[in-house]
Design a protein around this nucleic acid. Sequence first.
DNA 1: ACAATGTTGACTAAATAAGTAAACAATCCC
DNA 2: GGGATTGTTTACTTATTTAGTCAACATTGT
Lengths: 147, 147
Amino acid sequence: MKLSTRTRYGTRALLELALHEGEGPVFLKNIAASQQISLAYLEHLIAPLIAGGIIRSVKGPKGGIALAKKPGDIKLIEITQLLEGSLAPVECVDHPEVCKRSSKCVTRDIWSELKTAMDGVLSTTTLQDLAEKQKNRGLPESSMYYI
Amino acid sequence: MKLSTRTRYGTRALLELALHEGEGPVFLKNIAASQQISLAYLEHLIAPLIAGGIIRSVKGPKGGIALAKKPGDIKLIEITQLLEGSLAPVECVDHPEVCKRSSKCVTRDIWSELKTAMDGVLSTTTLQDLAEKQKNRGLPESSMYYI
DNA sequence: ACAATGTTGACTAAATAAGTAAACAATCCC
DNA sequence: GGGATTGTTTACTTATTTAGTCAACATTGT
């Protein structure tokens, strides 16, 4: 029941963008350095985020990526949906037809409740919430590369 | 973010025991048949449940397994803890020391909230809750082998 | 033109989960 | 006591997914 590194890294990368909101595109290289993610791996995470309309990218020198929406308009569940897919702990929660037991299965009800509980948390938190909390708490040292 | 089959199968097996509560030990063979689990695989799931004090076993003819406690005293979180381990979506939630960022990491807070939300669901539901719900809903056909 | 950047696809490696098979141990029943 | 029946444990295999790397490619500013 672990979250993939895709989601963890991707969320941190987006938080980094939120912290730099308004400063124009940020280099992937810098995000990778400040969040301690392999650049080659980070490159793979941005494609679905672009496709999902969460970030925009600029190629060439002075390029980089930036948030495509206001941080307050980006719910965390959008991120997990794009990088992780549904949070359903079992397939039958989203697709009852994969198991003939679904209609009478009470364990399925519980797994469904788990999903609902998680969705609740991630639907009520935005990137802005995270960014503000981070600013109050003090930026991690590694995020200060831009000084 | 999927639940292992260990947990899914194990929970169904225990539900089966709860449905047969008071009838003495149930054959693994019958549990496997009624819940459509490979017997050889089911055998692997019972060891941790015995060690965890949730079920007891009887060897030899007329043997089988049965709940070691009343269904109402077995919370689902005990089962997931034994078969799945902690529901922490990331390692650092349970063990902050694995990452130096932990103290200032706001994404960690969110993953921690996810765990709390899940734990809440599984701490407030017992095997008896499941069994009663199942009885009201009608037993799945496959559970009627004992007729 | 060239250097700096993001984009994409192919590939490898590692870890974990899932499942199978077989030897073993205990117990009941006759 | 012997044999059938059942749970217990160990070892092994296979499949799947995740994580990560590498290299070619495309775009753009200077």
